[in-house]
């Protein structure tokens, strides 16, 4: 059974369809990459799947049940979300940020129990943030902060992770690290939806890709099917080339396409 399934989603803002008839499914064991040029509607689609944006048409199901029939708290136990801007407003300790991942499981006056502690310890281990726990998040580097936030997401124990451009401003070491965490989450039965701009990471770590443009779904499928030079030329306006090097195949942008407007 799929974790999240959104069908024929349509979101209209000020008379413009930002997302128009897009369907996508998150299934256990898969990392789905959401790619497309700026303003293609990737973030809006993700937020619609989380229930943060109202659908104007179409439907969204969580664990087979209509999303609307879930309470906010129940949803938060199933889906954990990492927005684009993860900067905390206060100089919080990293350990406390990660512990806040358990908020969807705690009632108002309830203190975290051993189950919560266990989930937190596991998340800390998965995100490899043991040596950051005593640091203040506002003093961390971008990559360190992303790992701490990822640990917070993992601590919720939600089967589905949805991350909006998590590696956009990180150094390559951290980019690999973050993507590996997602892959590991999927391997252990979770599902991941991740907005990416780097096509090589998309090719390397995603099981499936959804390419969006102007609110529409252009193509959905395995990375090799989606990342074809003629499709990318049409959508991004760039010329690309696949380069084989030993056991690696890389997609290399070679320049802007001349006739693209």
């Amino acid at each position: 059974m799929s974790h999240i399934q959104i069908e024929q989603a349509r979101v209209v803002r000020n008379g413009v369809a930002i997302v128009d008839g897009v369907s996508v499914e998150l299934v256990p064991g898969q990392v789905v990459g959401l790619i497309g040029p700026n303003g293609a509607g990737k973030s809006t689609l993700m937020r619609a799947m989380l229930g943060l944006v109202q659908l104007d048409a179409g439907s969204c199901r969580l664990q087979g049940r209509q999303l609307e029939s879930w309470s906010m708290r129940e949803r938060a136990r199933q889906m954990a979300y990492l927005p684009q801007n993860t900067e905390s407003h206060w100089p919080l300790l990293a350990a406390r940020v990660i512990a806040m991942g358990r908020l969807p499981h705690l009632s108002y006056w309830q203190r975290p129990g051993p189950g919560d502690q266990q989930a937190i310890a596991r998340a800390v281990q998965l995100a490899e943030v043991e040596d950051l726990l005593e640091r203040v998040v506002t003093t961390l580097s971008g990559g360190e902060r992303m790992r701490v936030n990822l640990a917070r997401l993992l601590a919720t124990g939600a089967p589905s992770l949805l991350a909006d451009e998590p590696i956009a401003s990180l150094d390559p070491y951290h980019q690999f690290h973050i993507m590996e965490i997602f892959a590991e989450h999927a391997r252990s039965g979770g599902s991941v939806l991740v907005v990416l701009h780097d096509l090589n990471y998309a090719a390397r770590f995603c099981d499936r890709l959804l390419l969006m443009d102007h609110g529409n779904s252009v193509i959905q499928g395995a990375p090799a099917e989606v990342l074809q030079p003629e499709i990318l030329r049409r959508v991004y306006g760039i010329d690309t080339r696949w380069v084989e090097s030993e056991d690696l195949s890389l997609i290399v942008p070679v320049g802007r396409h001349r006739s693209h407007h």
């Binding site: 906010m72 979300y81 206060w90 969807p104």
Partner: peptide, 15 residues
């Protein structure tokens, strides 16, 4: 606490 991560952050945490 949840609002430290922005309004949508808090919403996605079940509030």
């Amino acid at each position: 606490d949840a609002l430290s991560f922005g309004e949508e952050g808090a919403q996605s945490m079940g509030f």
